[in-house]
Design a protein around this nucleic acid. Sequence first.
DNA 1: GCCAACGTTGGC
DNA 2: GCCAACGTTGGC
Length: 153
Amino acid sequence: MRYWLMKSEPSDYSIDDLVRDGSVPWYGVRNYQARNFMRDQMQVGDGVLFYHSSCPQPGIVGLAKVGKLAYPDATQFDPQHKYFDPKATPDNPRWFNVDVHIVQKTRLMPLAEIRDTPELANMRILQRGNRLSITPVDPDEWNVIVARLAGRP
DNA sequence: GCCAACGTTGGC
DNA sequence: GCCAACGTTGGC
């Protein structure tokens, strides 16, 4: 059982979209490190912090979980799609995604609050130049965040 | 819109 | 394999 933080721009896909859909294929990841986390390490049931990025109020906005092991990202094969990859074939797919299932929408935990919480000082999300859209989260960090989101500061 | 940081590409 | 150029990310 592992824990992850997954970023999404709310203008593309928000926590409210996930509440509406219940589950979503996490397609469109085109970074090898992030792909490898999904393909090689994610297990069904892993905990996910849903994070809004590139928006007026960046931060954690919900809890989710991995609902399905990684499988080939369908958008890489679709020439009409913005995530089309001409070098990928169904026999030799390059990009993979898991399915993400909603657990619950939470209050916003802003980036500033994460930064101001000493136990969270080592999170990847706070490090300079961090651009990875999927990062591992330590169990201790997960517990601190879940406790704060549950109103137990 | 700015800009720092980082990943990818492609010529050599 | 090197590395400059370019594109993208993402907070501010």
